[in-house]
Design a protein around this nucleic acid. Structure first.
Length: 836
DNA sequence: GTAGGGTTAG
């Protein structure tokens, strides 16, 4: 082994020495030639430079040779060298351009290489102009050139033009196996796998005996089957490869392993893999990837061990596959472990590895490791000149996403802004929009989305972008914006990703208070999944339409979807918010028996909420005591909320104490407790809590409401007088309060402290943000149109009562969303029927 | 001509 290595090293050295000598001789000859003839070069000189493997010298010599058909050979050799050997496409093209300038006309050998070069860049205009040159120069077409045109258009993304060329070839009967393979590749690369399969079928049927699929055909069609997860056709190809005697080919074997692995049939993949006599690193990696993608990491790691034993060096793809597998499953820590092991083994991470690691950091919000990866990326990738390259942008997109998911939105934004508009891809926009949408700054998300849409020659949103924008709308309850996006979706084609988009639309309509349109979207879906069903059910639950929610649940039971914990959470939530206590209890008691879903902490919290709302506080407490796991803060918060609702001081104090034991005291805890004391008239305790909060330095989150006006959204804080029509708002409010007092409204002063830091109570009640928002809505909304208000915290009880009275005397439905549900208030009654 | 990667929902 080592002697062979030594030998090949020596041989290489000798060859390079020989070439250097040749080059030296040629240079001397060249100088002598110039002295002797006064000319700068001739064909012999060019030929000598080419033989001594020095294309750049050959090129500069060739420029001085006058055109004649025999010397065209040298141009073609040069172009071929740069396209095929050194893959310096730009150089190849500059040679072609020089050649044209000097008056040479390309021939049947030049065209395929130049077309290939255009495709590799890819540059549509170059390719199309070469095609144009072919047409106008009266070149006699042959099958090689035609195939090259098909491939070029395919690589430049013009599937239609590629197909047009192919059809013309069909018309004159100029097709060989390579033509069929070329058109198949075009479809595979464009993602139209069905059509690739269709073309393969046509080839087999039409071609007869003289057009038999070769290794390349099989490899392509296997890739299509793998992408479509169509193992039935894959199996047929498997048989075909046996019949044709091509199963021994390592490429075909790899294709089969990959196809079975992608279809999740790892046992079949294993059989092929074990029978392959020649395996290369691709075969191993395909298996490792297969196991990683179905989450069988033990098997993947076992293979890695076997590779070590058999001394096969795992390359970067294998490592990346395992890292990506972990990252996609949200197992960021394991992904980082493998990354460390990889660095340890000495393998060099590449773009794919880095992107996978970044995604791992993103899912576990590991900012420190993310920053380390950023540093490493700068060393490895981000210092290249090709700022615009796709690979560069991929890493940058991964970084922006990582920073956004780690909640470092400032850094994410700075990176995003440092990228020129022309370099931002749709993914760049999407990660930034999504980053804002997920971390609360939904207004910025929508602004960014508008920026992107208004850039005329810019980027077209894909289904991911649309989904992110809809998430932002849902958070803001921005129904108008959401409707515009819905209209955009209907005008443009998003069919292939409609499931995801429609699910987001449902959620947007639900959270914006339009459950009926959400239902229309749901009913019109061609394809649904468990998320679609659960979203609609959540909608009915949030809007207090418990019976309809449970009808949806019964609908799910009739489908074959697996009912999971999230679905059950929604069922319990719906029962809780519609007062269906006994039904909720029975669902909860039977969920593990009938559906195999074990109740988790969240389910217990929901049950505490359900019992607590119904006033069954001792039952709620008993449930907490009997929990098989330790209660987490959400459980105690639910209990505390119930104590507030039913003014139970003792239990409330207990829950608050438990919360502070768990180190999770937040402003909500203190506010609730303070309100419990207030409703019991224990003002001293209220004052104690207030000063405690001041001492510890906890500030209350200000209550804040916003309302959808004609011109966008208006936002109000408690006692807010900053709005231009503030005077009108307060006047209207005073007037309304007076009117409803006549109807029997009595201010509930115990809520006065709910939202104010100020010790004064009483008058301040009517400065609550939701009341201000309502008054603004009344002033700016046409009669008959619902007024939509959103509050960040839970709605105050007095505001709720006041709004119910007000709804008797105004020609509007009031649709109010708070942190827990929707209230539809109309003609003096509310859908929450007291179960808020 | 084969293997790996970034953005979305309950």
């Amino acid at each position: 082994m080592s002697s062979m290595v030594l030998y090949s090293r020596q041989a290489k050295k000798m060859i390079s020495v020989y070439k250097k000598k040749m080059l030296l001789k040629t240079k001397v000859k060249h100088q002598q030639y110039i002295m002797r003839t006064g000319n700068l070069s001739d064909a012999k000189i060019v030929s000598s430079y080419l033989l001594s493997d020095c294309p750049s010298q050959a090129f500069s010599a060739l420029v001085y040779v006058s055109p004649s058909s025999t010397e065209l050979f040298y141009w073609n050799s040069l172009i071929k060298h740069y396209v095929v050997v050194s893959k310096n496409i730009k150089k190849a093209i500059s040679i072609f351009i020089t050649m044209r300038k000097l008056g040479w006309l390309p021939d049947g050998y030049t065209y395929p290489y130049v077309l290939k070069a255009s495709g590799e860049l890819p540059c549509f205009f170059l390719g199309a102009s070469v095609h144009g040159l072919l047409v106008v120069s009266g070149f006699e077409w042959n099958v090689f050139v035609c195939n090259a045109v098909v491939a070029m258009y395919g690589r430049c993304g013009s599937v239609d033009l590629a197909r047009q060329m192919f059809d013309e070839m069909t018309g004159v009967g100029m097709l060989d196996v390579i033509s069929w393979n070329s058109i198949c590749v075009v479809y595979v690369h464009s993602g139209d796998f069905e059509r690739a399969l269709e073309m393969f079928g046509l080839m087999v049927r039409r071609g007869g005996l003289c057009l038999r699929p070769d290794v390349i055909s099989l490899v392509n069609v296997l890739a299509a089957c793998a992408s479509l997860r169509n193992w039935r056709i894959g199996k047929e190809i498997h048989c075909c490869s046996i019949r044709r005697g091509l199963i021994e080919d390592v490429f075909v074997g790899n294709g089969l392993v990959d196809m079975y692995a992608k279809c999740g049939l790892m046992d079949k993949a294993e059989v092929i893999f074990d029978r392959m006599e020649v395996k290369d690193v691709v075969s191993w990696n395909a298996m490792v990837t297969g196991y990683s993608q179905i989450g069988q990491f033990d098997d993947a790691l076992e293979l890695l061990k076997r590779m070590r034993v058999e001394e096969i060096e795992l390359n970067v793809v294998g490592w990346s596959a395992v890292i990506a597998g972990y990252a996609q499953r949200g197992m960021g820590c394991q992904a980082l472990d493998i990354f460390r092991e990889m660095m340890h083994s000495g393998a060099e991470p590449n773009v794919v590895t880095l992107v996978s690691v970044l995604s791992g950091c993103a899912v576990v919000a590991a900012l420190r490791q993310g920053k380390e990866t950023h540093c490493y990326s700068i060393k490895r990738i981000l210092n290249v000149d090709e700022y615009d390259s796709g690979e560069y942008m991929m890493v940058v997109n991964g970084l922006i996403d990582m920073y956004a998911k780690c909640k470092d939105l400032d850094t994410a934004q700075r990176m995003f802004e440092s990228i020129e508009w022309s370099s931002r891809s749709v993914v760049t926009w999407t990660v930034m929009i999504g980053g804002y949408a997920q971390h609360g700054d939904s207004n910025s998300a929508l602004e960014l989305f508008s920026d992107m849409m208004q850039n005329k020659k810019g980027v077209i949103p894909n289904s991911f972008t649309i989904s992110c924008a809809l998430v932002a709308c849902a958070r803001l309850g921005a129904l108008r914006f959401g409707r515009q996006i819905h209209a955009y979706v209907l005008r443009n084609r998003y069919e292939s990703a409609m499931l995801f988009v429609a699910n987001c639309l449902i959620d947007m309509y639900v959270k914006s208070g339009d459950i009926d349109t959400a239902r229309v979207v749901f009913d019109s879906m061609k394809e649904r999944n468990i998320v679609s069903w659960t979203s609609v059910m959540t909608g009915y639950g949030m809007h207090g339409r418990g019976e309809e929610a449970l009808q949806i649940f019964e609908g799910i039971r009739r489908t074959s979807y697996v009912i999971d914990g999230v679905t059950f959470l929604v069922v319990l939530y719906a029962c809780s918010h519609s007062g269906m206590v006994d039904l909720g209890i029975s669902y909860f008691n039977n969920m593990s028996k009938d559906f195999g879903v074990l109740p988790e902490v969240e389910h217990y919290a929901c049950m505490v909420d359900l019992l607590g709302r119904a006033g069954r506080l001792s039952d709620a407490m008993k449930l907490v005591e009997d929990m098989p796991m330790d209660p987490t803060p959400i459980v105690w918060v639910a209990l505390l909320g119930a104590c507030r609702l039913h003014s139970n001081v003792d239990l409330g104090e207990y829950a608050a104490a438990k919360l502070s034991e768990l180190d999770s005291e937040n402003d909500g805890t203190y506010t609730l407790l303070s309100n419990i004391y207030a409703s019991a008239g224990r003002w001293k305790d209220v004052a104690r809590i207030r000063s405690l909060m001041k001492n510890i330095g906890i500030r209350k989150r200000p209550g804040c409401s916003w309302v959808q006006g004609k011109k966008g959204t208006a936002m109000f804080y408690v006692g807010d007088r900053s709005h231009p029509i503030s005077n009108d708002i307060y006047n209207l409010l005073t007037d309304l309060i007076d009117k409803i007092k006549v109807l029997g409204y009595v201010p509930e002063t115990s809520y006065a402290l709910h939202d104010v830091d100020d010790e004064e109570k009483g008058d301040l009640l009517f400065e609550h943000s939701e009341k201000l928002a309502l008054a603004y809505g009344l002033l700016t909304t046409a009669p008959g149109v619902p007024i939509r208000i959103i509050k960040n915290l839970r709605v105050c009880g007095d505001c709720h009562t006041a709004m119910t009275y007000i709804s008797k005397i105004v020609p509007h439905e009031i649709i109010l969303r708070d942190s827990s549900r929707f209230h539809h208030i109309k003609n003096g009654s509310c859908t929450c029927k007291g179960y808020w």
